[in-house]
Design a protein around this nucleic acid. Structure first.
Length: 111
DNA sequence: CTCTTGACTGGTT
DNA sequence: GAACCAGCCAAGA
């Protein structure tokens, strides 16, 4: 692979996020066995826009359900727009009912 | 090669 | 409860 396996795994998990749900950087990192490398997950998202295969990075937010990376999208509003179009409720850059929307790969997926 | 920064998180103060 | 600090890892200057 061009990128390290860690990066590939990150993108793979993000693509598996069901529509109408979202997860956090830490959850992905933890799923990959690197709970303390959440920053790298964020960095991977930053790289995602350079990839040929675009990934639903808008479904990945910080642990508070806040759209921390919205400013890195083409337009800051595109992230919220996408989430809302998928049935999520976003208010003030924060996903409402985050506890319900949260999709934990550690619970939903299995190696 | 060294230093800084960052789409994070958890623990302290 | 907001603010600050430390750890972790990759990329850019």
């Amino acid at each position: 692979m061009a990128q390290s396996d860690f990066y590939t795994n990150i993108f793979d998990v993000v693509r598996l996020i069901p529509k109408g749900r979202a997860t956090s950087y830490g959850a992905i990192a933890k799923y990959l066995g690197a709970a303390k490398s959440s920053r790298v997950v964020g960095w991977a998202m930053n790289q995602s826009h350079t990839l040929e295969d675009k990934i639903p990075a808008h479904r990945v937010v910080n642990r508070l359900g806040m759209l921390s990376g919205k400013m890195h999208f083409a337009t800051p509003d595109s992230m919220q727009e996408r989430l809302e179009s998928e049935g999520l409720v976003v208010k003030k850059d924060v996903i409402q009912d985050w506890n319900t929307i949260f999709w934990d790969p550690n619970l939903e997926l299995d190696y």
